[in-house]
């Protein structure tokens, strides 16, 4: 069947929608190269703000913290989430539906509520706030997302391939590493990437669970723009946008290579 071309009208509307989404971002990127300090008028091209950014010790620390939290919480959430997804796929037990729905509640409830509850919890067990509490919180809100993504991937997983592996002489452990994991790997990586992205730009939950000296990039940016948006923040945001964009591309490629 021949594909129908969209009408002129439809194309125009689409263009407007894209413009609506992307113009603010483009302006932000453009002004990150602007010699003027105020985001009002274009004066000339400079890389000065990037230089300022790279020499800012606070930003450096915040970046280090953010990456540390994101990487650690992604690894932990991916392992736990994948195991949970496999268990939900494989076993039926009393209370299955309850446990299944309970897993997704953190996705639905407002982040503020989650942040407050975590703060209250850490206070209750008298755990001092810092990098560790942020990481633990990120792990907890990332698990449901990993489970969601991996389960979607497991849907239609042919469990006879695991039986085939055992039939051919593999025990449970070899079967998992050589057959199950490689088969679901694209889903696991997608889940991990999602967790990483969510952790990277989380503000609300991090705000509630951060302590002194554990500032992350989103927290830092918010404190920088409290009065006005500076070109330095524009530069930081630009780098950020590109990082996320590249990760999305990788995710796209991963998903495509497996359909």
């Amino acid at each position: 069947m021949r594909e129908k071309k969209p009408s002129l009208w439809l194309r125009l509307v689409s263009l407007l929608i894209y413009a609506y989404i992307y113009i603010p971002i483009i302006i932000l990127i453009v002004f990150s190269f602007n010699t003027q300090k105020l985001n009002v008028r274009w004066e000339g091209f400079t890389l000065h703000w990037y230089e300022v950014l790279f020499n800012d010790a606070n930003i450096g620390l915040a970046t280090r913290n953010t990456l540390l939290i994101a990487i650690t919480s992604t690894i932990a959430a991916t392992i736990i989430g994948t195991m949970a997804a496999l268990a939900l796929q494989r076993y039926r037990f009393p209370g299955y539906t309850l446990i299944e729905s309970a897993l997704y509640i953190p996705v639905i409830i407002p982040e503020v509520v989650m942040g407050i509850s975590l703060l209250a919890f850490f206070a209750f067990i008298q755990f001092s706030l810092g990098l560790l509490t942020i990481t633990l919180s990120h792990i907890s809100f990332n698990i449901p997302f990993v489970v969601l993504v991996v389960r979607a991937r497991l849907h239609g997983f042919d469990k006879s391939i695991e039986e085939a592996a055992k039939d051919l002489g593999a025990n449970e452990i070899i079967t998992f590493w050589r057959v199950t994991l490689p088969t679901i790997l694209p889903g696991v990586l997608s889940g991990a990437l999602l967790a990483f992205t969510l952790s990277l730009d989380d503000y609300v939950i991090t705000y509630f669970t951060a302590g002194p000296g554990s500032t992350t990039l989103p927290l830092r940016v918010f404190s920088m723009v409290r009065f006005t948006v500076t070109p330095e923040v524009n530069a930081l945001s630009t780098i950020w946008i590109f990082t996320v964009f590249i990760m999305m591309l990788i995710n796209q490629l991963l998903t495509r290579s497996n359909t």
């Binding site: 042919d158 006879s160 391939i161 039986e163 085939a164 592996a165 055992k166 039939d167 051919l168 002489g169 593999a170 025990n171 057959v179 490689p182 088969t183």
Partner: peptide, 17 residues
């Protein structure tokens, strides 16, 4: 367990890796 039995199976769905 299956991996210790001297039998092998050809599955209905083939179950190829």
């Amino acid at each position: 367990p299956p991996y210790l039995r001297p039998v092998n199976t050809v599955f209905q769905s083939y179950a190829l890796f």
